[in-house]
């Protein structure tokens, strides 16, 4: 700004981190969608599409990291926010894990190909990925509602209304858990055909996909802590 003949009070207004937080959550949602597509492609044997989606998820993760760094940089000691910056960073860390988990799961699929799989497994995984995506999307609607409310310090009632989404995220995550257990059972039933490495690989994949839903729940918790303990 130097060089302009102006004296302004602009500097007193810091860069609010809430809009970037929403952008960051959007990356998580995008990553969950792409992972869902990647799982569908993988169990149809379409390794080419899987690879393309892997690259895309990787890029999404990089973008999310960039936003995360921007938010961290905006939280210097002189900046005062309507929330505790420690809670904000805890929340951001949790939310960031969603994208990271999506990337890990996508890469994990690239490590191994399957010729033939039992129908329960072949259909179970897409079901798991789809439910996971649904959980993350539900979580995103919470963020969409809340970031504006926090920024404008709206009424407690409105914030309470927004948090009614949390039990829905929890419920979806339970469904993800249920699908996980069933898939695990089917994988062990097929252990002869799959061999040790196959069992290991698929079990780990179940974990990795389900992780996204777990992280959506823990992000929602961290968000609640941030907003309620203002």
């Amino acid at each position: 700004m130097s060089g302009k003949y102006q004296r302004t009070v602009i500097e007193v207004f810091g860069k609010p981190p809430f809009l970037p937080l929403e952008e960051h959550a959007r990356k998580a949602q995008i990553a969950a969608c792409k992972l869902n597509e990647a799982v569908q492609a993988y169990f149809e044997g379409d390794m080419e599409t899987l690879h393309r989606l892997c690259v895309e998820i990787d890029r999404t993760e990089e973008e999310a990291d960039y936003i995360k760094q921007k938010i961290q940089a905006s939280l210097s000691a002189s900046v005062k926010l309507p929330v505790d910056p420690k809670h904000l960073l805890d929340f951001l860390t949790e939310q960031d894990k969603i994208v990271n988990d999506a990337r890990n799961a996508a890469y994990w699929m690239e490590l191994r190909e399957y010729e033939e799989l039992a129908p329960e497994i072949k259909e179970g995984f897409p079901e798991l990925a789809s439910k996971t995506k649904e959980t993350v999307e539900k979580y995103y609607t919470l963020i969409e509602k809340l970031y504006k409310l926090v920024e404008l310090s709206f009424s407690k009632k409105k914030i309470k209304d927004a948090f009614e989404i949390v039990p829905e995220v929890d419920r979806l995550e339970h469904e993800v858990d249920r699908i996980e257990s069933e898939l695990t059972k089917h994988i062990f039933e097929e252990q002869e055909k799959l061999h040790g490495a196959g069992v290991c690989h698929l079990l780990e994949l179940v974990e990795k996909i389900g992780d996204l839903a777990d992280k959506a729940v823990s992000s929602a918790d961290a968000l609640q802590t941030m907003v309620i303990r203002r």
Binding site: E11, G14, P16
Partner: peptide, 18 residues
């Protein structure tokens, strides 16, 4: 005054370095 409103959590961010 702006800082006062900010510290009352009325603004999403105020920079006290000013």
């Amino acid at each position: 005054s702006v800082i006062g409103v900010g510290l009352a959590r009325g603004l999403s961010s105020v920079d006290l370095s000013v």
